[in-house]
Amino acid sequence: MKADPQAQRRLLDLQALDTSLAQLAHKRKTLPEYAEVDRLARELSALEDERVRVQVGVDDLDRDIARLEKDIDQVRVRAAKDQQRLDDGAGPARQIEALQHELATLARRQGELEDTELELMEQRESAQGALNEVEQRLATLREKRAELERSRDEALSQIGREEEFRRSGRAPLAGDLPEDLVRLYERSREQTGLGAALLRAGRCGACRLDLNASELNRVKAAPADEVIRCEECGSIMVRTEESGL
C-alpha cells in the first residue's frame, strides 16, 4: 500500500489518541472505588444480618417483659381485691385467715415476678446498647459507601469528559487521512492492539523487537510512500528521522 509519508506520520497522532482512549477505558473498569464499594457492600450485608439478630433478641425481651408486666398486674389486681375483702372484715375467721395466706402468697409471687422483670430489663438495656452500636456502625458504613459512590461517580464523570475530548479530536484526524490507510490501521489495531508505531533506531515501537538485518535492508530500500508493516506483530511502522535508516 502507498500513502503519503506525512499521512503515515499522522497515524502516530491517531494511535496516541487511541492509546489514551484505551487507557481511559481500562481506568474506567479498574477504578479502586469499585472494589471498595463491593467490600463495603459485603460488610454491610453481614452487619445487617447481625442487626436483625440483635433486634430479634430485643423484641423477644420486650415480649417477655410485657408478659411479666401483665402477670404482675393480674397479681396486683387479685391482691387488691383480697385486701379489700380483708379490710371489710366480712366472713368467718377461717376465710379471713385464707385471705391473709393468699395475700402473702401473692406478695411473694409479685416479688418474684418483679425480680425476674428487673433481670429482663437489665438484659434488655444491654441488648439495646448492642443494637444501638450495630446501628451506629451501619450508619457509618452507609455514609462511607455513599462517599465512595460519590467519588466513583465523579471519577467516571471525569473519565467521560476526557474520553469525549479525545474522541472529538479523533474524528477529524481520522477523516483527513486516506480511507484505505485508516482501514489498514484499524485492522492492525484490532489484531495487535497497536495500529501504528514509530520505527526508532531499527526497533518496532509496537512489539519492541529489533529488526533483523534482512528486514532492516527491506525497510531501507522501500520508497518513502510505501506503508511498512512489522513482520513480527503486523503493526504499521512509521518511519521518521528517528528510525535509524
Results as ranks from 00 to 15, higher is better:
Ala98Gly: 11
Glu33Ala: 14
Ala66Ile: 00
Thr105Ser: 14
His101Ser: 15
Asp38Pro: 02
Met121Pro: 01
Gln100Trp: 00
Thr30Glu: 14
Lys70Tyr: 08
Asp49Val: 05
Gly89Arg: 03
Asp38Trp: 08
Leu86Ser: 02
Glu97Cys: 00
Ala25Pro: 04
Leu120Lys: 15
Ile96Tyr: 04
Asp60Val: 08
Leu14Glu: 05
Asp73Lys: 14
Arg39Thr: 10
Ala104Gln: 14
Gln23Ile: 04
Leu17Gln: 10
Gln84Gly: 09
Leu17His: 08
Gln55Ile: 00
Thr116Pro: 01
Leu14Asp: 06
Thr30His: 14
Ser45His: 13
Gln100Pro: 03
Glu114Arg: 08
Val77Lys: 13
Gln55Val: 00
Glu33Ile: 07
Glu125Pro: 02
Arg67Cys: 02
Thr116Phe: 01
Lys27Ile: 04
Gln74Thr: 09
Gln23Met: 14
Gly57Pro: 04
Arg108Thr: 13
Ala46Trp: 02
Ala25Arg: 14
Ser20Phe: 10
Leu24Trp: 02
Ile65Lys: 02
Lys29Phe: 09
Gln84Thr: 12
Leu31Met: 07
Leu21Glu: 02
Gln23Ser: 15
Leu86Ala: 03
Gln74Val: 09
Leu24Tyr: 03
Leu86Thr: 05
Asp49Arg: 13
Asp64Ile: 05
Asp18Ala: 10
Gln110Met: 05
Arg42Val: 02
Ala93Gln: 12
Leu103Asn: 04
Ser45Arg: 07
Asp13Ser: 12
Glu114Lys: 07
Ala66Trp: 00
Gln15Tyr: 04
Gln15Lys: 05
Arg51Leu: 05
Ala79Phe: 06
Glu117Thr: 10
Leu44Asn: 09
His26Trp: 14
Asp62Val: 05
Ala22Tyr: 07
Glu125Arg: 12
Thr30Tyr: 06
Leu113Ala: 09
Asp71Thr: 12
Ala25Gln: 15
Glu102Asp: 15
Asp71Pro: 00
Asp49Phe: 09
Ser20Asn: 12
Ala93Tyr: 04
Asp82His: 10
Gly111Thr: 03
Ala90Asp: 12
Tyr34Pro: 02
Glu33Met: 13
Val77Tyr: 01
Gly57Gln: 13
Gln15Met: 03
Val75Cys: 03
Lys81Trp: 04
Ser45Asn: 13
Glu48Ile: 01
Leu47Trp: 04
Asp64Ser: 11
Leu68Pro: 01
Asp18Leu: 15
Ala25Thr: 13
Pro32Leu: 05
Met121Ile: 11
Leu31Phe: 06
Val58Gln: 01
Leu120Glu: 07
Glu48Leu: 09
Ile72Arg: 07
Ala79Arg: 14
Ala93Asn: 00
Val75Ile: 11
Asp88Ala: 12
Leu17Ala: 09
Asp64Asn: 11
Glu50Gln: 15
Gln100Ala: 05
Ala80Tyr: 08
Arg63Thr: 10
Val77Ser: 10
Lys81Val: 06
Arg78Trp: 02
Asp82Gly: 01
Val56Phe: 08
Thr105Asn: 11
Leu103Met: 09
Glu69Met: 06
Asp71Glu: 14
Leu47Ser: 06
Val56Glu: 13
Leu103Val: 04
Asp73Phe: 04
Ala46Met: 07
